[in-house]
Computed example of a mutant assay.
Amino acid sequence: MTRLLTTSFLALGLGFGAAQAQVVGDIDVIANFMTDYGLPVEKTKDSDGDPKIESRIEGTNFSVYFYGCDVGQPCDSMQFSAGFNLNDPLSMDTVNDWNRGKRFGKVYIDEDGDPFIEYDINLDFDGVGAKNFDDTIDLWRVILGQFRDHIDW
Rank of each mutant, 00 (worst) to 15 (best):
P40G: 14
M1F: 12
T94Y: 01
R148C: 11
S55W: 03
Q22R: 09
G72C: 04
C69I: 04
A18C: 04
R148T: 14
I30V: 05
D152T: 15
G113N: 03
D48Q: 08
D149E: 13
G145Q: 04
S8M: 13
D114G: 08
L4D: 12
G59I: 00
E58L: 06
R141E: 03
I57L: 06
D70S: 13
G49E: 07
F33H: 11
V107A: 07
S47L: 14
G13I: 09
G15M: 12
A130H: 02
K43D: 00
Q73P: 00
T136K: 01
D126P: 11
C75M: 03
G49L: 12
D93F: 06
S91F: 00
I121S: 12
L39F: 08
M78S: 02
G127Q: 05
D93A: 12
V128L: 09
W140C: 01
D114P: 11
I30S: 02
G101A: 15
S8W: 12
R148A: 10
Y119I: 08
Y65D: 08
Q20E: 13
V95S: 12
D26S: 09
K52F: 09
I27K: 05
F33S: 15
A11G: 07
R3Y: 10
Q20V: 07
V24D: 13
Q22N: 11
P51F: 08
F125V: 14
S91M: 00
V128C: 08
G83T: 03
F104K: 14
V142I: 14
E111C: 02
E111V: 05
G113V: 06
S81I: 00
D110E: 01
N87C: 01
E54P: 12
S55A: 03
Y67T: 03
Q146F: 11
T60L: 11
R100K: 06
L144S: 01
Y65F: 09
K43F: 06
L139N: 12
I117F: 01
F133V: 00
F62R: 04
V29N: 10
C69F: 04
R148D: 08
R100E: 09
F125L: 09
Y108S: 05
Y37W: 13
I151L: 03
A130M: 06
R3F: 13
D138I: 01
N87H: 09
P74L: 12
D97C: 02
V41H: 06
Y67R: 06
W98M: 06
N61D: 07
D135C: 04
D152R: 11
Y67C: 01
E111L: 04
G17R: 14
A19S: 09
K43Y: 04
Y65A: 06
L12I: 10
A11T: 02
G59Q: 05
F147H: 07
G59L: 00
D112T: 08
V142L: 11
G13D: 10
R3A: 15
M78R: 07
D149L: 07
V29G: 13
D48G: 04
I151C: 03
A18Y: 04
D138C: 03
L86C: 10
K52G: 05
L12F: 07
